Simulated assay, not measured.
Amino acid sequence: MVDPTRGVLYPARLPEFHRLPAPVEAAELVAWFWIPEWDIDPGRSSRQEIVAYPALNLVVDAETVTLSGASTRASHRDLRGNGWAVGALLRPAAVAALSDDPSSLVDGERVLVTASVAALRDAVVEAMATGDGHRERAVAVFSRWLAERVGQVDAPARQANALMDVLMGDDAALTPEEAATRLAVSVRTLQRMTHRHVGLSPAAMIRRRRLQEAAQRVRDEPGLDLASIAAELGYADHAHLTRDFRAVLGIAPRAYRTVAGD
């Protein structure tokens, strides 16, 4: 599992936050589970800013179950009072059971309202209220529900998971052409697969992963110059990295390094 703060722009501002691996029964369906818990003083708020992974998330809180689409921009959420959420970063094999058109959810979300989903929410709420080990119990009931919802994972779904690994995993491809070669498919087939399972193009997914990793390295490796980061992540040059930062995050890399390090 990647660094738990990747995608989070200002980790020092986080409330209690955990990333848990998927249990065996959900390993082909969920990259990891993420659980924030917060208790903010009355009259105050905590703004959490993220550059989300290019994937769908199924999120349970005390009141709703929400399916969130892949995002193309930075986003934020202002936390107030006390609360929690249990989110599953979905692997492509899980998507078809929850949405037949992921592209319609890009930069958006949909509240799911069915008897089955209500049962999931109630089970997670009960698990989160049970003291020590509550996060692990919540993940366990979430995983069982998702495994039952998806059913048997077939060969095309596993190929879609391999696609995500090639585009987003360790030693990820730097271009759609490289990804297609690794998967032994055409670039056009690759495009159809990402559209069907994520709703974004392969190039958009690569850009998001690069920006996530760039932000993490700019923040966490203050001694590393920006030109080296740009070169290692496949940017054409330092200026290209800066343009990406400004376009998505609204801030230049040097300024972000200063602010994030405070």
Rank of each mutant, 00 (worst) to 15 (best):
E221H: 09
E213G: 01
I50P: 00
A52M: 06
G250E: 04
A179I: 09
F142H: 04
A204L: 11
V218Q: 01
R158G: 04
Y235G: 04
L58H: 14
L174A: 12
A252E: 13
R217H: 08
L105V: 06
V113E: 14
R196T: 13
F33A: 06
F142S: 03
L58D: 11
P54G: 11
P202V: 03
T181H: 08
P23I: 07
T130H: 13
T242V: 01
A231P: 00
L163C: 15
R137Y: 06
S75M: 10
R219L: 14
D132L: 14
D107V: 04
E126P: 00
L163E: 13
R182H: 10
E221V: 01
A93S: 13
I251S: 01
A147Q: 03
P176Q: 07
A180I: 04
V65F: 10
A230D: 00
T181W: 05
L79N: 01
A119G: 09
E177Y: 07
L105F: 10
A214H: 02
T189D: 12
R137N: 12
T5V: 11
S186F: 09
M168N: 04
A12G: 11
E37D: 11
D122M: 07
V30C: 08
M1W: 03
A157W: 00
A26Y: 03
I35Y: 05
R6M: 08
R137C: 08
L98N: 07
L174D: 11
A157I: 01
L183I: 13
D225E: 08
E49V: 15
D171P: 00
A214E: 03
T5K: 02
M128T: 04
P54D: 12
R73I: 03
R188Y: 09
D41S: 14
V95H: 09
A129S: 15
F142I: 06
D225Q: 03
A204W: 01
L183S: 10
G133I: 10
E221S: 10
S116F: 00
E16K: 08
R121E: 06
S45K: 13
P222M: 04
G151P: 07
Y256H: 07
H195A: 15
M128E: 02
E221I: 00
N57Q: 14
A247Y: 01
G81T: 10
L9K: 04
D171F: 10
H195T: 11
N161M: 09
R210S: 05
E126L: 14
L183Y: 09
A85H: 01
L211I: 05
A231I: 00
L241Q: 00
L174H: 13
R73Q: 12
G199F: 09
D122K: 13
D39V: 04
A52S: 15
V24T: 15
V111P: 02
V24K: 13
S68E: 14
E49A: 13
A129Y: 05
A160F: 08
G261C: 08
S201W: 03
R182K: 12
A215D: 06
V111H: 07
A252N: 04
M1S: 11
E126A: 15
R209M: 06
H197L: 01
G131P: 02
R210D: 05
A214Y: 01
R192A: 12
L163W: 07
A239R: 14
V141G: 07
Q48W: 10
T175I: 08
N82R: 15
H134Y: 07
